[in-house]
Simulated scan of single mutants.
Amino acid sequence: MLINLGRLLMLCVWGFLLANLFNPFPKPLKYFIDIALFFMVVMHGLQLVLLKSTQPKESPISRWQETKIFIFGVFELLVWNKKQSPVKKK
């Protein structure tokens, strides 16, 4: 439930940042949003590169999963990690 709320929040953030490219905000805010968009692309890209470098060659990540991790960031990584780790019962 909260993961889906985080995904929705991330989509709203992406939408807000990309809206500045098509309809720029007033001058001081425009520069801040441009820097925030650059930072977001770099951080999500770095997150994806680091994840791909730690994966074994036998089980690569699909393109669809890579796209979801780039867009949703840590929220998608939490879901992905939960699916990857086996459930341990006591």
Rank of each mutant, 00 (worst) to 15 (best):
56 P>L: 02
44 H>R: 08
16 F>V: 09
23 N>Y: 14
75 F>V: 07
77 L>N: 03
80 W>Q: 06
29 L>I: 14
24 P>I: 08
24 P>C: 00
30 K>N: 15
73 G>F: 01
45 G>A: 13
65 Q>V: 10
21 L>P: 11
18 L>W: 01
58 E>P: 05
49 V>A: 12
82 K>N: 12
76 E>P: 00
36 A>L: 14
67 T>F: 11
32 F>A: 10
76 E>I: 00
33 I>N: 03
28 P>R: 00
69 I>H: 02
45 G>M: 06
7 R>A: 05
43 M>F: 05
44 H>W: 11
11 L>F: 13
43 M>G: 04
80 W>V: 00
54 T>P: 04
43 M>D: 08
27 K>M: 14
62 S>M: 05
17 L>S: 05
53 S>P: 00
37 L>Q: 00
64 W>D: 12
43 M>E: 14
59 S>W: 10
39 F>L: 09
60 P>T: 05
34 D>V: 07
7 R>I: 05
61 I>V: 14
19 A>K: 09
53 S>W: 13
80 W>P: 01
40 M>A: 14
20 N>T: 06
17 L>V: 04
45 G>E: 10
22 F>V: 15
64 W>E: 13
78 L>R: 10
43 M>S: 11
75 F>E: 03
82 K>M: 11
27 K>Y: 06
51 L>W: 07
65 Q>I: 10
26 P>S: 11
31 Y>C: 05
55 Q>A: 15
82 K>H: 13
42 V>P: 00
38 F>W: 04
17 L>P: 01
9 L>A: 15
13 V>S: 08
81 N>A: 04
24 P>K: 02
44 H>K: 07
73 G>N: 06
61 I>M: 14
37 L>T: 03
27 K>T: 10
70 F>N: 02
41 V>C: 15
42 V>T: 06
30 K>M: 07
81 N>G: 08
17 L>G: 11
70 F>T: 12
15 G>Q: 10
78 L>T: 04
58 E>H: 14
63 R>L: 15
6 G>Y: 11
23 N>L: 15
13 V>C: 09
40 M>C: 11
39 F>G: 09
11 L>P: 01
21 L>Y: 09
78 L>D: 02
63 R>I: 08
69 I>K: 01
64 W>R: 15
65 Q>D: 12
26 P>F: 09
48 L>W: 05
28 P>W: 06
15 G>T: 12
62 S>C: 03
52 K>W: 02
39 F>R: 02
39 F>K: 04
82 K>V: 05
74 V>R: 04
81 N>L: 09
84 Q>I: 03
19 A>Q: 03
34 D>L: 06
45 G>T: 15
21 L>S: 07
15 G>N: 05
75 F>G: 02
12 C>W: 07
76 E>S: 00
69 I>S: 01
12 C>R: 10
78 L>E: 02
19 A>W: 02
71 I>L: 15
43 M>Q: 08
43 M>I: 07
67 T>Y: 05
54 T>K: 14
37 L>M: 08
75 F>S: 07
60 P>H: 02
59 S>T: 13
50 L>I: 02
26 P>T: 01
54 T>A: 11
6 G>N: 08
67 T>G: 10
37 L>V: 04
73 G>I: 09
